[in-house]
């Protein structure tokens, strides 16, 4: 068979792999891995938001710590996810089951949240802030009623970038023994089964694109004032 034919056959085999109900059931099955991936992504997104957003909003409101908030994104990009996962695995955290995965996921989701929220808060027109102060608003009122609503588009774009990042990091976690859809890929490599590797990759890519699509749809359906110009920080 020529090379092109072999490729078509691999795609057909991957399709057949996905069609086999046996691959969807059980602890190593697609449904279980999909649930793990979803739970990891949602839980870690919530934890990261709880950590990053209050810090970024307060720092942005006070106008302090800007260099840290902006540079942390660049640091996050330079440190390989895989290296952090393995380093955590070899520390005492490694014995906690999903511990290394959760810690690594949160570590990589915090920078985009922090940077975008901070830049959003600082990007609020200073004359509007001064007007709010002139009307006698307290700092707390200004934060909640003026700055946060105006910064919301960038805050939400940070959440979106973090969510996509989380899906990707949860996939790499499989290399270090973490749960999730990536396990289907790594198991495929261990079995030298190209169809399983490709099938797992299709599932992961589909999952990531659906997450991105949900945010895209939410952005379009949201009221106009939450939108604004989309910028990626860093």
């Amino acid at each position: 068979m020529d090379e092109g034919g072999a490729r078509v056959k691999t795609l057909g085999d991957a399709w057949a792999w996905l069609g086999d109900p046996a691959h969807w059931a059980g602890d190593d099955g697609v449904w279980h891995r999909l649930t793990q991936h979803l739970v990891l992504t949602v839980v870690c997104l919530l934890i990261s938001c709880l950590i990053a957003l209050p810090v970024a909003l307060v720092l942005g409101h006070l106008g302090r710590g800007g260099a840290l908030a902006v540079n942390i994104s660049n640091v996050g990009r330079a440190v390989p996810t895989f290296a952090v996962l393995v380093l955590l695995l070899l520390t005492p955290i490694g014995t906690w089951g999903d511990g290394p995965t959760v810690v690594a996921l949160v570590l990589f989701a915090v920078p985009p949240l922090l940077t975008n929220a901070y830049v959003g808060m600082r990007g609020v027109d200073r004359s509007i802030v001064r007007a709010a102060r002139g009307m006698g608003m307290t700092g707390r009122q200004m934060l909640w009623k003026v700055e946060l609503p105006l910064a919301l588009p960038l805050v939400l774009s940070g959440v979106r970038i973090a969510a996509v990042q989380l899906v990707a990091t949860a996939t790499i976690a499989a290399l270090a023994g973490g749960g999730g859809l990536g396990r289907i890929i790594t198991a495929g490599f261990n079995l030298a089964s190209t169809p399983q590797v490709v099938a797992g990759a299709v599932l992961v890519a589909g999952f990531a694109l659906i997450v991105e699509g949900i945010f895209e749809a939410a952005e379009r359906l949201a009221p106009g004032w939450t939108r604004g110009t989309r910028r990626r920080a860093g």
Binding site: A6, R7, T10, L11, V167, A168, T171, I172, A174, L175, G182, I185, G188, T194, V197, V198, G200, A201, V202, V204, A205, A208
Partner: peptide
């Protein structure tokens, strides 16, 4: 995700 990208290119 990167792992999926490399895997899709495997064939």
């Amino acid at each position: 995700p990167s792992l999926a990208m490399f895997s899709l290119l495997l064939p």
